[in-house]
Structure formats: structure tokens, C-alpha cells
């Protein structure tokens, strides 16, 4: 158990440090790299919780796809850091004040942590014994039965996101020559070639 406790504190501390660095790094590329570190640590926390499937998904999707995409975007955009930082001093005190107040309140809330009597049993109710059934299988079991509504709805959300990204970015460019294989295959000499007999002394009209 000691090992698990040590692992938790390591992962948790690293996750917080990573999160802070995401915000405080001046270079956006560095921020993204810190974000990746945070994701890894979060995945580690999931493993400790026994949710290895979620941990793997986190690594594959967030680290492998999302974060890398972020990196690309950040690198391509060439953001001018100084401009963004401009004027931040004007708001820093107000921001700190509001943030501080909010933080203090949330701390109050968490220190007076009183769960409802049956909250613990309620929240663990859908979780089967991990020794009987694997994590992935258990998720699959409820995902397509109890949560089929949410699953389908999430699918539609993704569809909308896809439509949206296409609608907002795709444009048909004029003047661009694209390769159309079918056209090339269907091409016949008669379509493009014309045999003419040129009389001597006269050019082509």
C-alpha cells in the first residue's frame, strides 16, 4: 500500500506542477509539452485507481492525438508572446483577488467535506468486481446498454463537430489542378489528339 501511496503523491504533485507550468510558460510550445506531462501523470492516477482502460485512452487520445495536434497548431501560428502579455498587469490584481476569493471558498467547501450517507455506495454501484471482469469489458457492458443514449448522443456531437470543422474551414479553391485518376484512365487519344494535314506554304489557322 505504501508503494501505491507514494505513487499517488508523485503523480499528483507532478500533475499539479505540470498544470502550473502550462499556464506560466512563456513559450507556447513549452506549455504544450508540460501539458503532455500532465496528461501522463493523470493517466498514472487512473492506473492507481484501477481504471487502466481510461488511463490508456488518455495516453493514446490526449497525448498521442490531441497534444500533438496542439503542437502543430502552436508551431504553425507563430504567436507573438509579448503582445498577449500586454496589459496583463492591469488585471492581475483584480484577477488575483477574484481567484483568491473563489479558491478560499472552494477550500472551505472541501474542508467541510460531508458526503451524503449513501453517496459512497451509490457512486460505486455500477462498478463490478475487477477480479471477475476486466475494466474494458465492464465499461463496454454499460456503455452499450445503460448509457446507450449518451453514447449515441456523443456520436451526434462528434458528427456536428465534424460538420462544423468542415463547413468552417473547407473551401473549394479555384485554379488548383487536382489529379483525377478516373479521368486519366478514361482518357482516349481521340479526346485530345487531332490529326491535321498541313499544306505546305500555309500555317495552321
Amino acid at each position: 500500500m505504501i508503494a501505491a501511496a507514494i505513487a499517488f503523491y508523485v503523480f499528483a504533485t507532478m500533475a499539479v506542477i505540470g498544470g502550473l507550468n502550462v499556464i506560466f510558460q512563456r513559450n507556447p510550445v513549452h506549455s504544450v509539452l508540460w501539458l503532455i506531462l500532465t496528461f501522463f501523470n493523470a493517466a498514472g492516477l487512473f492506473v492507481i485507481l484501477g481504471a487502466e482502460f481510461v488511463a490508456m485512452i488518455l495516453v493514446v487520445v490526449y497525448v498521442g492525438a490531441v497534444a500533438v495536434l496542439f503542437l502543430f497548431v502552436v508551431m504553425m501560428l507563430d504567436i507573438n508572446i509579448t503582445v498577449i502579455r500586454e496589459g496583463i498587469h492591469k488585471y492581475v490584481w483584480a484577477g488575483l483577488l477574484v481567484g483568491g476569493v473563489l479558491l478560499a471558498e472552494l477550500v472551505t467547501v472541501f474542508t467541510s467535506w460531508v458526503m451524503f450517507d449513501d453517496a459512497a455506495s451509490l457512486s460505486t454501484a455500477p462498478t463490478p468486481d475487477p477480479n471477475v471482469i476486466t475494466n474494458t469489458e465492464a465499461l463496454g457492458n454499460i456503455l452499450y446498454t445503460d448509457y446507450v443514449y449518451l453514447f449515441q448522443a456523443a456520436g451526434i456531437i462528434l458528427l456536428v463537430a465534424m460538420i462544423g470543422s468542415i463547413v468552417l474551414t473547407y473551401r473549394t479553391r479555384t485554379g488548383v489542378r487536382k489529379q483525377v485518376i478516373a479521368d486519366q484512365v478514361a482518357r482516349r487519344p481521340s479526346d485530345t489528339l487531332e490529326m491535321v494535314k498541313v499544306e505546305s506554304g500555309k500555317g495552321l489557322q
Binding site: A94, V101, L102, E105, T108
Partner: peptide
């Protein structure tokens, strides 16, 4: 944008403070 977001945060901070 950040003014707007800030207004929202102030709003929620006020509400939460009031309630707490």
C-alpha cells in the same frame, strides 16, 4: 473576450461567496 470571461468569473465568485 477576456473581459467577458472575467465578468462571468466575477459573477460566479460573487454568487458563491454570497451563498457560502
Amino acid at each position: 473576450l477576456y473581459h467577458y470571461a472575467f465578468a462571468m468569473i466575477i459573477g460566479i465568485a460573487l454568487f458563491v461567496s454570497w451563498i457560502v
